[in-house]
Measured scan of single mutants.
Amino acid sequence: RKWEEIAERLREEFNINPEEAREAVEKAGGNEEEARRIVKKRL
């Protein structure tokens, strides 16, 4: 699934746990840019 690939990239890029990465992607509706913004806000 594409969402899992996005979550994996976010996890590696921001050094967050898989659960946090998945939550961000879900919140963003699968949009990678939006997920990235969500993760950055949390850091």
Rank of each mutant, 00 (worst) to 15 (best):
R1K: 15
R1I: 14
R1Q: 15
R1A: 15
K2A: 13
K2D: 13
K2Q: 13
K2N: 15
E4I: 06
E4R: 07
E5A: 04
E5G: 04
E5W: 03
E5N: 05
I6H: 02
I6C: 04
A7Y: 06
A7I: 15
A7N: 02
A7G: 04
E8R: 13
E8S: 12
L10F: 02
R11F: 08
R11Y: 08
R11E: 13
R11L: 15
R11M: 13
E12A: 10
E12T: 10
E13A: 05
E13P: 00
E13Y: 05
E13Q: 06
F14Y: 09
F14G: 02
N15T: 06
I16Q: 02
I16G: 02
N17G: 15
N17A: 15
N17V: 08
P18I: 15
P18E: 15
P18R: 10
E20K: 05
E20G: 05
E20N: 05
E20V: 12
A21E: 01
R22M: 15
E23C: 03
E23N: 11
A24G: 02
A24N: 01
A24W: 02
A24Y: 04
V25F: 03
V25G: 01
E26I: 14
E26M: 10
E26H: 12
E26G: 07
K27G: 07
K27Q: 13
K27H: 10
K27V: 11
K27C: 04
A28D: 00
A28V: 04
G29N: 15
G30K: 02
G30I: 02
G30P: 01
G30N: 03
G30A: 03
N31S: 10
N31D: 14
N31A: 06
N31F: 07
E32L: 12
E33D: 13
E33L: 10
E33Q: 12
E34C: 03
E34I: 12
E34D: 09
A35F: 00
A35S: 05
A35W: 00
A35K: 00
A35Q: 00
R36W: 02
R36L: 05
R36H: 05
R37T: 10
R37W: 03
R37C: 08
I38T: 06
I38V: 09
I38A: 09
V39P: 01
V39S: 03
V39G: 01
V39E: 02
K40I: 15
K40G: 09
K41D: 14
R42T: 14
R42D: 10
R42H: 15
L43M: 12
L43W: 06
